[in-house]
Write a protein that binds this DNA or RNA. Structure first.
Lengths: 192, 192
DNA sequence: GTATGATTAATCAACTTTGATCAATTTATA
DNA sequence: TATAAATTGATCAAAGTTGATTAATCATAC
């Protein structure tokens, strides 16, 4: 919620825009950073307007539906600065929804687990490829930084997943030859 | 929402429990994995009950408020398996709320930016220390895996942040001596 | 013995988020 | 040119989420 506000104010810091424009921009360029949907953006912008952080004026081009053009106010700029500071100072909550699945890995055979994770690894590799192929955005330096941040985490996940799958596979063959040597799955001692 | 269900069903796979117990467990042990709050858990459990995936029976110990004891049904077990598969196959959305802040780094002086991020790095280091000091949970292997997954990402973030701060600091002194040599902040070429 | 605070247990009202939809307009297609 | 399809622009009802609260019990100390 706080982050939604930061994102929208940050976008408006560049220049005033109408709702459709903003949402377009988010969908096209910022899907890696946020999953905010249109109605949420409108709702958040309205809230920001009610608090005096953005101004709205209705505009009509031709006889298309009225567009709402949002501009950041000077109080909004201050608020933006404070949100930005807060965001930079306190890090992510760092929650991976995939950790929920991992927690229950014991309910699966190592074979099945490995197969499912292999699928995910494939998808991850595609995502990394897309990411690396994409040209630098051209919006400031910060955006490039954020993209790099995202990318290094994707790559870590790829490597980590690879190791886990390897271990699962080993575990599976060990199990079938029934030679029980302690091949601990966790604590792969990737001592960083 | 899907993940909430997976989490709750997974917990019930171990054994039947009442609501308070479940929420207690989540707060105490799973804060790294989820931020689901009590009312959401109750709501989700009710939804699962309505769909026949869990059974609820009211229990009264002494004359304390009635407790609702939840058990997973056989259909629930099937559903759990499908959710687990889905979770393992399709990875995270991988969104870092901190990326939103990073995107707007250009609105700050390199000095301020570095100072704010330094603060965050500090917090990160504390978190990593806490994480490493904590004894292995003792719940199955999967839980340890999830914890390790979390940890490696924290460490990556620490290292990455360190580099960014270093670059910002360099940028700042470069700027004050006004010798403009291209010290690109992004693309630090951490070629993995 | 009784005021004080912690624990057990769950719910509600308020807020946030989104899938679905609407309605006009422009572009493509037959 | 008539018609389907895509785009522009935004809203609403429904669903998900949570801070605050209720209410009883147990522990503690005064």
């Amino acid at each position: 919620m706080r982050d939604r506000e930061l994102l929208l104010l940050g976008i408006l810091m560049a220049h005033s825009q109408h709702g459709y424009q903003i949402n377009e921009f988010i969908e096209m360029n910022l899907s890696r950073v946020t999953d905010m949907k249109k109605p949420t953006a409108y709702a958040t912008l309205d809230r920001l307007a009610a608090q005096g952080f953005v101004e709205v004026r209705s505009e009509q081009a031709g006889n298309r539906p009225v567009r709402k053009v949002y501009s950041i106010t000077s109080q909004g700029t201050e608020y933006f600065q404070s949100l930005l500071k807060e965001n930079l100072m306190s890090g992510d909550k760092m929650q991976f929804s995939s950790d929920i699945g991992l927690m229950f890995l014991d309910h699966l055979s190592p074979d099945d687990a490995a197969a499912f994770l292999e699928e995910r690894l494939q998808a991850l590799n595609h995502d990394i490829a897309r990411h690396e192929k994409a040209p630098p955005h051209g919006f400031g330096l910060g955006v490039d930084l954020a993209m790099d941040h995202h990318l290094v985490h994707l790559k870590l996940d790829r490597d980590w997943l690879g190791q886990v799958i390897e271990n699962l596979r080993q575990r599976s063959t060990e199990n079938s030859t029934s030679s029980r040597s302690r091949g601990d799955l966790a604590n792969t001692d990737r001592s960083h």
